[in-house]
Amino acid sequence: MKDRTTESDSLYDNLENMPIGELLHSINREDKKVPEVVEGCIPQIEKIVLEVSKRMKAGGRLFYIGAGTSGRLGIVDASECPPTFGVSHDMVIGLIAGGDSAIRKAVEFAEDDTEQAWKDLSEYNIGPNDSVIGIAASGTTPYVIGGVKDARENGLFTGCITCNDGSPLAQAVEVPVEAVVGPEFVTGSTRMKAGTAQKLILNMISTGVMISLGRVKGNKMVDMQLSNDKLVERGCRMLMNSLNISRVEAQELLSSYGSVRKVIEHYKK
């Protein structure tokens, strides 16, 4: 593999001497580059969404595996699927090297074990309809590379999100997404532009898959979990606008049926 872009020197120097305003404008200038890079990755992202959707319609699940920031981003995306789309918590699953304790605190050398990811995946009774997406800015994380290799050998669909060209991770999967966003503002700090690119791509994957599975109606989250007052209020507004009913009636129906979708289906009958 050639020199890693994610480790290349920042385009800026003497950061400690910059006025705060200049620091912030410079960070923002770099951040603006990220969406354009992600746009160039859409053909590969599309392939992942299509493959994952096909397998999930057959009963499969989506697994994200990563270490450090990448692992945390996968867990965040997975954890947002149940409240947003009303799916079960075992439909989209994020795994991080070092286990759940690594979500808050780094676990030393956990990412260097090439066999642990498959052990972690195997606890979920993994099957051929499942999909595994490896997330690693560097594209060299042993935990992630080992995991996708084992997954692919066992017949699962594999993809990845990385921020370097020609990485070992990209070579190990069926559909690599390589979002090369360039040097970080702070050299090597991939929680910045690389992390932003990964987050944008994860948003696209999970949202695209869930829409393909019918979890959005029109442009509304009709299956969202009504887990707080804000979401109940959102559900009421959806029903008031869709069915032309009063707030009181919307609240009563939502309380009775438990979801926007079920209320709308009831009305259709």
Rank of each mutant, 00 (worst) to 15 (best):
L15E: 05
E16G: 14
E16R: 09
H25T: 08
N28H: 12
P35M: 04
E39H: 11
E39P: 00
G40I: 05
C41F: 10
E46V: 10
K47G: 01
L50N: 12
K54A: 13
R61T: 04
S70K: 12
V76S: 09
V76P: 05
A78T: 02
P83L: 15
V87Q: 08
G94Q: 05
L95Q: 09
A97K: 01
D100W: 09
V107E: 11
A110G: 12
E111I: 02
T114E: 14
Q116P: 00
P128M: 02
S131R: 02
V132M: 03
I133K: 02
G134S: 11
A137D: 10
S138M: 13
Y143D: 00
V144F: 00
G147M: 05
E153M: 09
F157T: 07
C163G: 07
A172C: 11
P176A: 12
A179P: 06
V181W: 12
G182S: 04
P183S: 06
P183H: 02
E184I: 04
T190E: 04
T196D: 10
L200H: 10
I201T: 05
M204S: 13
I205A: 01
G214P: 08
G218H: 08
M224T: 04
L226N: 07
L231F: 12
G235R: 01
C236P: 00
M238D: 03
M240Y: 08
N241H: 11
S242P: 01
S242M: 07
N244T: 07
N244I: 02
E249P: 00
L253I: 00
S255G: 05
S255H: 09
S256N: 12
K262R: 14
K262G: 01
V263C: 08
E265N: 12
K268S: 14
